[in-house]
Write a protein that binds this DNA or RNA. Sequence first.
DNA 1: TTGTACGCGTTATCAC
DNA 2: GTGATAACGCGTACAA
Lengths: 335, 335
Amino acid sequence: MVTIKQVAEIAGVSFKTVSRVVNKEPGVKPQNVAKVEKAIKKLGYRPNRAASLVRKKQTNIIGFISDEISTTPASVAILKGAQDMAWEKGKTLMVFNLDPKKPNKDKLYEECLQHRAEGIIYGAMYHQAVTFSDIFKSLPTVLVNCISTADDFLSIVPDDEQAGYYVTKQLLYKGYRRIAFLNLNPNIIAAQQRQRGFLKALTEFGLNNSDYHIATIEKVVDDKTINITREVAEDVLKTFKPDAVLCGKDLAAINLYFAIERLGFKVGKDIGVASFDNWHDIPEILDPQLSTMALPYYEMGRLAVSQLLTMKQTSSFTTQTLHKVSCLLCDRKSF
Amino acid sequence: MVTIKQVAEIAGVSFKTVSRVVNKEPGVKPQNVAKVEKAIKKLGYRPNRAASLVRKKQTNIIGFISDEISTTPASVAILKGAQDMAWEKGKTLMVFNLDPKKPNKDKLYEECLQHRAEGIIYGAMYHQAVTFSDIFKSLPTVLVNCISTADDFLSIVPDDEQAGYYVTKQLLYKGYRRIAFLNLNPNIIAAQQRQRGFLKALTEFGLNNSDYHIATIEKVVDDKTINITREVAEDVLKTFKPDAVLCGKDLAAINLYFAIERLGFKVGKDIGVASFDNWHDIPEILDPQLSTMALPYYEMGRLAVSQLLTMKQTSSFTTQTLHKVSCLLCDRKSF
DNA sequence: TTGTACGCGTTATCAC
DNA sequence: GTGATAACGCGTACAA
């Protein structure tokens, strides 16, 4: 490997001058800058990051630990957002995936510490509560899409209540008055908060118990969540006879579309449909295209990095705030 | 930050002994090991990776450059596979995402070089040909899900011809004799190869031109690929009247299911359906569940790392081989 | 089994 | 503007 000293020799200057050129420090004669740059090119020199890190205080490394995040298409965007913001701020993200079979956060955190990461972002697959050991307090840490069971970290989560509230309001504005909510597993935070928003919107409009219906489209058997949208949707459509259906996720909206068609109705004309996620290509591929509340994963990823950097500047480790990021309606054709 | 010397002082040994304990070198008195470990715990010492990398030849870092890979749900698995294998082999993956707006592979490669990565994996979003500058030859490099236009790198791609061949054979075995192939954009390598496999299987069964029909479900307008499965499927179903349809991707199979139902047919009973991808939850959510050729992304990711390490061992930089990874049929209920 | 001298490639300090 | 020299935290070689 080519070192700074070899470059110095070829360029005919001291190695410190080479260092100045490499780091773009001011105060080097343009003539020498040229000589050094020529030598660098000739030898194919690359600065050794590790050696530089030994001396510098700033490593510019941020650790990103993901709880299976990168296998979940919807929330891959978190990683993308974090990476983009990190790049803009001159930081490098070191990404680690938790092994679902033996999830040992602490080991990965250890890895980040050894690399002298300046902070950690922990991203979860879905909005949930997670328990962290004390080792996580060694560095500024930001949680994304989850909260700590001990509530001792800065968390960035989607504002699910606002999402439920907003989309319901939109349905009501458009004149729908008999709304069924096919909600996710009620154990999930998102499901609870969306339901609260849903009910709040209905109340504001003066609707009462008989005007809405809530069902769950997920059943948990042996720790596995199974999707029962098809049966539930058919049942609700037949018995409750809604004029609009709010669905817990885009994927399940596929089943809902089928159920509606099978009963001879037309989505968007006879029955309005709304959903949550804006999961990649699914809303566009459905006919009519699905109007859905987009979960702001990309923005959350960006925010995580910028919040982390703010924490470091103000050196306020103990910021235990909850950042709720608003969800936007992707308005298409289904209601 | 705590250093090895401070640990040595507390433990009452020389810092070299601490180094031995940390690196698990043999030949330290158990008594001293205990003393050192106690001191490490007490001080909260973490080895400084950067400092160690300066001295060691092996950095154990592999660079992973992804062409928007991590936003594509189907191929996120490549990253996951690479990460798992890297972890098993004691390597750390440094992940970089290409910015789709200004894709500059070389800059990210430079970054990897500065970190003294031992090799590079370049992953693409879909099976395609990519052009690389000469800088990519400074390190052992493996391409995943793409090939080089100059054909000068080791590539790992799905065996799309085998996939097309195998699934068609299965359709034929089950007795289907009038098969429509709703293929992807014919500019895509995968589409071409699958079609070859499709035709090969038909020929082997002695079927002729009138027994199959090939249509494309993607239209390119202004550099954007738009999905026209719905119209195409309805047309093909009405005019060609197939007894089975092979679909280019799971997502489009959703449209196909709708088209089939609207014409009063039942998927799996009246018309068999097969597809490509095994894209997350989509095959399971459809009714009946979709039988589809799974693209072996996870395996490809694993293979990329192991091949890279093999290249390094044999120091055969110029291996310009094409590794085709077989696809497996996920047999469900749709044919 | 343990410790010392030295070097890795870089940045920081300060004198020239 | 420039260049010695020290220092960073650790591994290697070899001596004790």
